[in-house]
C-alpha cells in the first residue's frame, strides 16, 4: 500500500496515480458470478458475435469497480470514498489495457471534513474515454 495521502498534499488540477487494468475472460466470468450480471455478451463469444459485437465486452459495472479501486487505493486507510458517479460512453474488451484516471477539480472544508472532488475516467488503448464521471472523497488533514 502507498503512503497515506493528506488533504494538504492535494493540488487542484493534478492527476492522481492511475491504475491500469487488463481484464481476462476468466475475470468476466468471475464478475458475472459475483455480481449476478449474467448477460451473455460478457462471456459468450458466439452470443456477442451474433449480437453484432466484435468480441465479448467488459461489464460497465466492473469498469466502475476498477474506478472505485483506483480511488480507494489513492485515499488510503484514513480517507473515505463518499460518492462517485459514472456515465458509460464506450465498450471495452478483454486482454487490453484499460487505464483508470482521475484529476482533482476542487478542494474545500465542509462540516469539518476535508473534501476533494475529482473528474474520473477510463481510457482505452486509443486514448478514448469509455467512462466519464466524478467523485468526492474526504482525506485526513495534517492539522
Amino acid at each position: 500500500m502507498a503512503e497515506q495521502v493528506f488533504y494538504e498534499d492535494v493540488e487542484v488540477g493534478s492527476e492522481i496515480p492511475s491504475l491500469v487494468k487488463q481484464t481476462t475472460r476468466r475475470q468476466l466470468v468471475q464478475w458475472a458470478g459475483a455480481s449476478g450480471d449474467f448477460y451473455e455478451i460478457h462471456y459468450n463469444k458466439d452470443f456477442a458475435l451474433a449480437s453484432g459485437l466484435p468480441d465479448v465486452i467488459l461489464h460497465g459495472r466492473l469498469k466502475s469497480a476498477y474506478l472505485g479501486q483506483m480511488l480507494t487505493d489513492w485515499i488510503g486507510l484514513e480517507g473515505n470514498l463518499k460518492k462517485y458517479n459514472v456515465r458509460y460512453r464506450g465498450m471495452d474488451f478483454p486482454e487490453q489495457d484499460l487505464a483508470c484516471k482521475g484529476k482533482v477539480t476542487k478542494k474545500y472544508v465542509h462540516d469539518n471534513e476535508h473534501l476533494v472532488e475529482l473528474d474520473i475516467w477510463t481510457e482505452n488503448p486509443k486514448g478514448e474515454k469509455t467512462i466519464i464521471g466524478t467523485a468526492v472523497v474526504s482525506l485526513p488533514a495534517k492539522g
Partner: peptide, 23 residues
C-alpha cells in the same frame, strides 16, 4: 466490503431466473 460492491446492483435484486431469455 469495498464500496464498489454497490456497483453490483444485481445482488440487490431478486435472483435472476436461470431460464430467463439471454440478456
Amino acid at each position: 466490503a469495498p464500496p464498489y460492491l454497490l456497483c453490483a446492483a444485481m445482488i440487490l435484486t431478486e435472483p435472476t431466473d436461470p431460464k430467463a431469455p439471454p440478456g
